[in-house]
Design a binder for these strands. Structure first.
Length: 496
RNA sequence: GGUCGCGUGGCCGAGCGGUUAGGCAGGGCUCUGCAAAAGCUCGUACAGCGGUUCAAAUCCGCUCGCGACCUCCA
């Protein structure tokens, strides 16, 4: 286990706190997964990317992480008119499919997106429909403790009663009286005792294709319940980190806390983490607003607002250049800048790995500077996973690497050990922690060999001062988006 | 109406009381057959108005603008 000085911005205390796991070296990490009724959009990707970094960095530090991320494949939810809607059932009707076909289709889609963006899969990916029994049991415990009541075969959580005995609203800063103002007009048809009560088991009649037997009749579990059940089932009644998008803070996460307290008397989560929204033209990107860009659209560039496509790693890099807790706005200019920056970073990484290291003639201050900058990279990561700052430090090292490329005889006073550390740091940070991988076609041996041949031919022409031939080769390759780079040590190539 | 957050140089984006963030774009120089790449170098920004402080982008107050949540959403 590496020395740990990791600090996390805990959104429930609103403070940056030192991360102390409950049972080191084990860490429990739960993240609210997608509802699989439509293709995942980029906003989803940003959140799951943020927690991919959390997962990866914790592992890098030596923790044994159990990462649980659910799939919401069932659950009653309400729409803006207050009507009850089963999103998956609704989509199934639209596509003329079985609900479980919809679930399967979009689960596969979601997995494909996480794979393309190089996210590590969770250790457990439980589905809500696979935990109906546990959800029923939790509802029973809530009822037994007096915080749930049945009405017309549905069960509701008695929020006013709960709030009297507990500190409700801590996470979102909502208080229960103010919430009442939010929904002033009490719907006469509402069967709840109080508008603020939320459903934990919802009656479903024969018209609903997905429903289960329960002590209260046929129905489906409430949306908030699944996360409470699955997180505590696999991570314990109290666990380390719970994450999700900011938009889930209220009511979803607040309800989770209430449910766990109501059922088991335990506050379930020690560190809450919330990611900020990805915006498009300053507006939150969301399924319901209809302004979302799908990952494949951004990759292919097929979208009215895009000039071109961007590679998955460019997109990943772009997102990592902003802190997860800040809003990030998507634009062509910003993506293009990220594309170039990403390439600069990865090319330096390649140069570094290919260096033949030898001891410098004389060790100078530069050696200490390089070591200090390497240390700084991890200081930034320890500071609430500050990837933009960590990348800034790495870019400082990129300049160092590139300058050695020019005068590589002596690495300007840096010891061999430090150079090896630099190599390890880049590998650990770029590949393992930030999850960036090279996209060059260089891994194709045939292409590599052909390119080397072409470079050799051009080198001959250049030696003979046959500039026409050498420039022709260069320009034609350029047209194929391949760029030659003449350096002191010979010519290398890369994609434009 | 309530809760929370944000406004940084041409663009993106860190920063949380005193230090060059970083990337992209732009100017100059070096290297180079030319170009590209790379290196060096330049620009000196913090919405506005007040206040606290030896010192404020950073703390406090007000004003303006923007966003999120309060209803499904990552």
């Amino acid at each position: 286990m590496k020395n740990n000085n990791l600090h996390i911005n805990n959104t429930i205390t609103r403070k940056k706190e030192k991360f102390e796991p409950l049972n080191p070296p084990f860490v429990g990490l739960y993240v609210c997964g997608p509802t699989v009724y439509s293709p995942p959009h980029l906003g989803n990707a940003r959140t799951f990317l943020a927690f991919d970094i959390v997962n990866r960095y914790l592992r890098y530090l030596g923790y044994r992480v159990r990462y649980v991320r659910n799939i919401t494949d069932v659950g009653h939810i309400a729409n803006s008119e207050g009507d009850e809607v089963d999103r998956i059932g609704e989509q199934a009707k639209k596509e003329n499919l079985e609900p479980m076909e919809v679930v399967q289709k979009y689960t596969l889609d979601f997995h494909e997106v996480t794979r393309v963006f190089n996210m590590m899969p969770p250790d457990i990916e439980p589905t809500a429909s696979g935990h109906i029994i546990e959800q029923i049991e939790m509802v029973e415990r809530i009822i037994k403790n007096g915080y749930g009541y049945e009405k017309n075969s549905s069960v509701y959580f008695d929020l006013p009663k709960f709030a009297k005995a507990h500190d409700y609203g801590k996470l979102s800063g909502q208080n229960i009286e103010e919430q009442l103002e939010g929904h002033r007009e009490l719907d006469a048809q509402d069967e709840k005792n109080d508008v603020r009560d939320f459903v934990i088991w919802k009656y479903a009649d024969k018209t609903h294709p997905m429903r289960w037997n329960s002590p209260w009749g046929e129905g489906v579990p409430g949306w908030h319940l699944e996360c409470s059940v699955m997180s505590t089932k696999y991570l314990g009644q109290k666990f380390d980190i719970h994450g999700g998008g900011m938009d889930l803070k209220f009511p979803h996460h607040e309800c989770e806390i209430a449910q766990s307290m109501g059922a088991d008397g335990t506050e379930p989560v020690r560190y809450w983490m919330h990611t900020n929204m990805l915006t498009m033209n300053g507006q939150k990107m969301s399924k319901s607003l209809g302004n979302s860009i799908l990952p494949w659209q951004l990759i292919s560039g097929e979208h009215a607002l895009l000039d071109q496509g961007y590679s998955p790693m460019t997109i990943r890099f772009f997102m990592l250049q902003a802190h997860y807790s800040s809003q990030l706005d998507l634009s062509n200019e910003a993506l293009k800048a990220a594309e170039k920056g990403y390439r600069r970073m990865m090319e330096a990484y390649e140069v570094l790995q290919k260096m033949n290291l030898r001891e410098a003639a004389k060790i100078t201050d530069a050696d200490k500077q390089v070591n200090d900058t390497i240390d700084a990279v991890f200081v930034e990561l320890d500071d609430d996973f500050n990837t933009p700052k960590a990348l800034a430090r790495l870019f400082e090292l990129v300049t160092v690497i590139n300058s050695y490329k020019d005068k590589r005889e002596e690495y300007a006073g840096v010891s061999k050990a430090t150079m090896e550390r630099l190599q390890t740091t880049f590998k650990d940070c770029l590949e393992d922690i930030l999850g960036l991988k090279t996209e060059e076609t260089a891994d194709d041996n045939t292409v590599d060999g052909l390119m080397q041949l072409i470079i050799d031919i051009r080198q001959n022409a250049r030696a003979n001062k046959d500039w026409t031939t050498s420039d022709l080769i260069r320009d034609k390759l350029n047209e194929l988006q391949l760029q030659l780079k003449d350096g002191k040590e010979g010519t290398t190539w890369g994609k434009v």
